[in-house]
Design a protein around this nucleic acid. Structure first.
Lengths: 96, 96
DNA sequence: ATTATTTAGTTTATAATATAAACTACTTTA
DNA sequence: TAAAGTAGTTTATATTATAAACTAAATAAT
Protein backbone atom coordinates (compact mmCIF):
# COMPACT_ATOMS: atom_id res chain seq x y z
CA UNK A 1 0.00 0.00 0.00
CA UNK A 2 2.23 2.81 1.24
CA UNK A 3 5.71 2.61 -0.21
CA UNK A 4 8.71 3.64 1.88
CA UNK A 5 9.60 7.30 1.54
CA UNK A 6 13.36 7.65 1.00
CA UNK A 7 14.50 9.09 4.34
CA UNK A 8 17.28 11.02 2.66
CA UNK A 9 14.71 12.99 0.69
CA UNK A 10 11.94 13.05 3.28
CA UNK A 11 13.52 16.02 4.98
CA UNK A 12 12.34 19.54 4.40
CA UNK A 13 15.75 21.04 3.76
CA UNK A 14 17.23 18.23 1.71
CA UNK A 15 14.09 18.06 -0.39
CA UNK A 16 14.24 21.79 -1.01
CA UNK A 17 17.88 21.52 -2.06
CA UNK A 18 17.18 18.68 -4.46
CA UNK A 19 14.17 20.52 -5.80
CA UNK A 20 16.35 23.55 -6.52
CA UNK A 21 19.17 21.52 -8.02
CA UNK A 22 16.79 19.81 -10.38
CA UNK A 23 15.68 23.10 -11.85
CA UNK A 24 19.03 24.90 -11.91
CA UNK A 25 21.46 22.01 -12.51
CA UNK A 26 24.22 23.76 -10.58
CA UNK A 27 24.16 26.06 -7.59
CA UNK A 28 26.47 27.76 -5.15
CA UNK A 29 26.28 27.24 -1.40
CA UNK A 30 24.97 30.73 -0.77
CA UNK A 31 22.35 30.49 -3.47
CA UNK A 32 20.98 27.37 -1.78
CA UNK A 33 21.24 29.04 1.58
CA UNK A 34 19.24 32.06 0.47
CA UNK A 35 16.59 30.10 -1.35
CA UNK A 36 16.05 27.65 1.48
CA UNK A 37 16.51 30.13 4.33
CA UNK A 38 18.63 27.53 6.08
CA UNK A 39 21.51 28.27 8.44
CA UNK A 40 25.00 27.62 7.07
CA UNK A 41 25.58 24.79 9.52
CA UNK A 42 22.39 22.98 8.75
CA UNK A 43 22.91 23.38 5.01
CA UNK A 44 26.48 22.14 5.24
CA UNK A 45 25.39 19.00 7.08
CA UNK A 46 22.51 18.25 4.74
CA UNK A 47 24.66 18.76 1.63
CA UNK A 48 27.12 16.22 3.02
CA UNK A 49 24.30 13.75 3.53
CA UNK A 50 23.08 14.23 -0.01
CA UNK A 51 26.62 13.75 -1.23
CA UNK A 52 27.12 10.60 0.85
CA UNK A 53 23.91 9.24 -0.61
CA UNK A 54 25.32 9.93 -4.06
CA UNK A 55 22.48 12.30 -4.88
CA UNK A 56 24.64 15.37 -5.49
CA UNK A 57 28.20 16.23 -6.37
CA UNK A 58 30.06 18.91 -4.49
CA UNK A 59 32.90 20.84 -6.01
CA UNK A 60 35.12 23.12 -4.00
CA UNK A 61 37.01 25.96 -5.59
CA UNK A 62 37.88 29.59 -4.98
CA UNK A 63 36.17 32.67 -6.27
CA UNK A 64 37.73 36.08 -5.58
CA UNK A 65 39.99 34.45 -3.01
CA UNK A 66 37.09 33.03 -1.05
CA UNK A 67 36.14 29.37 -0.87
CA UNK A 68 33.26 28.45 -3.14
CA UNK A 69 31.14 25.35 -2.86
CA UNK A 70 29.19 24.39 -5.94
CA UNK A 71 26.61 21.61 -6.02
CA UNK A 72 24.91 19.74 -8.77
CA UNK A 73 22.54 16.86 -8.83
CA UNK A 74 23.63 13.41 -10.01
CA UNK A 75 21.70 10.92 -12.09
CA UNK A 76 21.11 8.90 -8.95
CA UNK A 77 19.72 12.05 -7.36
CA UNK A 78 17.30 12.67 -10.19
CA UNK A 79 16.17 9.06 -10.06
CA UNK A 80 15.76 9.14 -6.30
CA UNK A 81 13.75 12.34 -6.50
CA UNK A 82 11.45 10.96 -9.17
CA UNK A 83 10.94 7.82 -7.17
CA UNK A 84 10.28 9.78 -4.01
CA UNK A 85 7.67 11.89 -5.74
CA UNK A 86 6.03 8.81 -7.22
CA UNK A 87 5.79 7.15 -3.81
CA UNK A 88 4.71 10.32 -2.09
CA UNK A 89 1.78 10.71 -4.42
CA UNK A 90 0.26 7.59 -2.91
CA UNK A 91 0.07 9.45 0.35
CA UNK A 92 -1.24 12.76 -0.82
CA UNK A 93 -3.86 12.03 -3.39
CA UNK A 94 -7.17 11.32 -1.83
CA UNK A 95 -8.52 8.03 -3.12
CA UNK A 96 -12.28 8.18 -3.40
CA UNK B 1 9.80 30.33 -1.83
CA UNK B 2 9.56 27.07 0.13
CA UNK B 3 6.77 27.12 2.66
CA UNK B 4 7.14 25.32 5.97
CA UNK B 5 5.98 21.73 5.88
CA UNK B 6 3.79 21.02 8.92
CA UNK B 7 6.06 18.80 11.02
CA UNK B 8 3.08 16.90 12.40
CA UNK B 9 2.23 15.73 8.91
CA UNK B 10 5.75 15.49 7.50
CA UNK B 11 6.19 12.06 9.03
CA UNK B 12 5.74 8.91 7.02
CA UNK B 13 3.48 7.14 9.48
CA UNK B 14 1.35 10.10 10.51
CA UNK B 15 0.91 11.10 6.88
CA UNK B 16 -0.19 7.57 6.00
CA UNK B 17 -2.69 7.59 8.85
CA UNK B 18 -4.15 10.92 7.81
CA UNK B 19 -4.24 9.79 4.21
CA UNK B 20 -6.22 6.72 5.22
CA UNK B 21 -8.56 8.63 7.51
CA UNK B 22 -9.38 11.07 4.77
CA UNK B 23 -10.59 8.30 2.52
CA UNK B 24 -12.35 6.13 5.09
CA UNK B 25 -13.59 8.75 7.56
CA UNK B 26 -13.35 6.31 10.47
CA UNK B 27 -10.95 3.47 11.19
CA UNK B 28 -10.03 1.02 13.91
CA UNK B 29 -6.55 0.81 15.39
CA UNK B 30 -5.85 -2.55 13.79
CA UNK B 31 -7.04 -1.42 10.40
CA UNK B 32 -4.56 1.43 10.50
CA UNK B 33 -1.89 -0.90 11.80
CA UNK B 34 -2.35 -3.35 8.94
CA UNK B 35 -2.54 -0.71 6.24
CA UNK B 36 0.49 1.16 7.45
CA UNK B 37 2.52 -1.90 8.53
CA UNK B 38 3.44 -0.01 11.67
CA UNK B 39 4.17 -1.55 15.05
CA UNK B 40 1.49 -1.07 17.71
CA UNK B 41 3.76 1.09 19.82
CA UNK B 42 4.71 3.40 17.03
CA UNK B 43 1.12 3.69 15.86
CA UNK B 44 -0.10 4.42 19.37
CA UNK B 45 2.41 7.22 19.80
CA UNK B 46 1.70 8.79 16.43
CA UNK B 47 -2.06 8.65 16.95
CA UNK B 48 -1.61 10.50 20.22
CA UNK B 49 0.40 13.18 18.44
CA UNK B 50 -2.26 13.59 15.79
CA UNK B 51 -4.85 13.84 18.52
CA UNK B 52 -2.82 16.41 20.48
CA UNK B 53 -2.53 18.44 17.30
CA UNK B 54 -6.30 18.28 16.99
CA UNK B 55 -6.09 16.53 13.64
CA UNK B 56 -7.97 13.39 14.66
CA UNK B 57 -10.45 12.26 17.27
CA UNK B 58 -9.92 9.04 19.16
CA UNK B 59 -12.78 7.09 20.63
CA UNK B 60 -12.27 4.19 22.96
CA UNK B 61 -14.88 1.51 23.40
CA UNK B 62 -15.19 -2.26 23.64
CA UNK B 63 -15.95 -4.77 20.94
CA UNK B 64 -16.48 -8.43 21.86
CA UNK B 65 -15.08 -7.66 25.29
CA UNK B 66 -11.84 -6.28 23.89
CA UNK B 67 -10.79 -2.67 23.87
CA UNK B 68 -11.36 -0.92 20.58
CA UNK B 69 -9.77 2.32 19.47
CA UNK B 70 -11.51 4.14 16.67
CA UNK B 71 -10.09 7.18 14.91
CA UNK B 72 -11.54 9.76 12.67
CA UNK B 73 -10.19 12.89 11.10
CA UNK B 74 -11.28 16.32 12.29
CA UNK B 75 -11.96 19.42 10.23
CA UNK B 76 -8.65 20.81 11.40
CA UNK B 77 -7.03 17.61 10.21
CA UNK B 78 -8.54 17.90 6.76
CA UNK B 79 -7.48 21.51 6.54
CA UNK B 80 -3.95 20.75 7.72
CA UNK B 81 -3.64 17.93 5.21
CA UNK B 82 -4.82 20.10 2.35
CA UNK B 83 -2.42 22.81 3.35
CA UNK B 84 0.43 20.36 3.69
CA UNK B 85 -0.22 19.00 0.21
CA UNK B 86 -0.42 22.50 -1.22
CA UNK B 87 2.92 23.45 0.30
CA UNK B 88 4.53 20.16 -0.56
CA UNK B 89 3.72 20.64 -4.21
CA UNK B 90 6.14 23.55 -4.30
CA UNK B 91 8.88 21.10 -3.49
CA UNK B 92 7.99 18.28 -5.82
CA UNK B 93 6.98 19.85 -9.04
CA UNK B 94 9.92 20.65 -11.21
CA UNK B 95 9.82 24.28 -12.26
CA UNK B 96 11.18 24.66 -15.77
C1' DA C 1 -8.87 -23.82 38.17
C1' DT C 2 -4.71 -21.98 37.19
C1' DT C 3 -1.29 -21.54 33.60
C1' DA C 4 -0.36 -20.15 28.97
C1' DT C 5 -1.55 -17.58 25.02
C1' DT C 6 -3.72 -13.94 22.55
C1' DT C 7 -5.74 -9.30 21.94
C1' DA C 8 -5.30 -4.51 22.16
C1' DG C 9 -3.15 -1.45 23.18
C1' DT C 10 0.45 2.13 26.27
C1' DT C 11 4.76 3.54 28.22
C1' DT C 12 9.50 4.07 28.10
C1' DA C 13 14.11 3.53 26.42
C1' DT C 14 16.99 4.01 22.56
C1' DA C 15 18.37 5.17 18.01
C1' DA C 16 18.23 8.43 14.38
C1' DT C 17 17.56 13.34 12.73
C1' DA C 18 17.45 18.05 12.46
C1' DT C 19 19.14 22.24 13.89
C1' DA C 20 21.79 25.91 15.86
C1' DA C 21 25.75 27.39 18.34
C1' DA C 22 30.42 27.48 18.37
C1' DC C 23 34.43 27.10 15.85
C1' DT C 24 38.05 27.25 11.78
C1' DA C 25 40.45 29.49 8.33
C1' DC C 26 41.05 32.82 5.73
C1' DT C 27 40.22 37.86 3.49
C1' DT C 28 39.11 42.57 3.46
C1' DT C 29 38.71 46.95 5.48
C1' DA C 30 39.53 50.55 9.01
C1' DT D 1 47.35 45.21 13.04
C1' DA D 2 43.00 44.87 14.93
C1' DA D 3 38.26 44.36 13.78
C1' DA D 4 34.87 42.78 10.85
C1' DG D 5 33.31 39.95 7.12
C1' DT D 6 33.11 35.62 4.09
C1' DA D 7 32.42 30.86 3.57
C1' DG D 8 31.94 27.44 5.28
C1' DT D 9 32.61 22.89 9.05
C1' DT D 10 32.25 20.59 13.40
C1' DT D 11 29.98 19.51 17.47
C1' DA D 12 26.54 19.79 20.94
C1' DT D 13 21.75 19.77 21.81
C1' DA D 14 16.97 19.35 21.03
C1' DT D 15 13.49 16.89 18.63
C1' DT D 16 11.60 12.65 16.43
C1' DA D 17 10.79 8.14 15.23
C1' DT D 18 10.81 3.59 16.44
C1' DA D 19 10.96 -0.69 18.85
C1' DA D 20 11.22 -3.13 23.08
C1' DA D 21 9.17 -3.84 27.22
C1' DC D 22 5.18 -3.53 29.76
C1' DT D 23 -0.08 -3.34 31.27
C1' DA D 24 -4.53 -5.16 31.50
C1' DA D 25 -7.73 -7.92 30.32
C1' DA D 26 -9.91 -12.11 27.62
C1' DT D 27 -9.72 -16.64 25.85
C1' DA D 28 -7.86 -21.25 25.40
C1' DA D 29 -5.34 -25.23 27.07
C1' DT D 30 -3.97 -28.64 30.70
Amino acid sequence: MFKELDPILHSQLRLAVISLLISVKEAEFNYLKEKTKASSGNLSVQLQKLKEAGYIEIEKSFKDNFPLTTCKISNAGIEAFENYVKNLKQYIQVKK
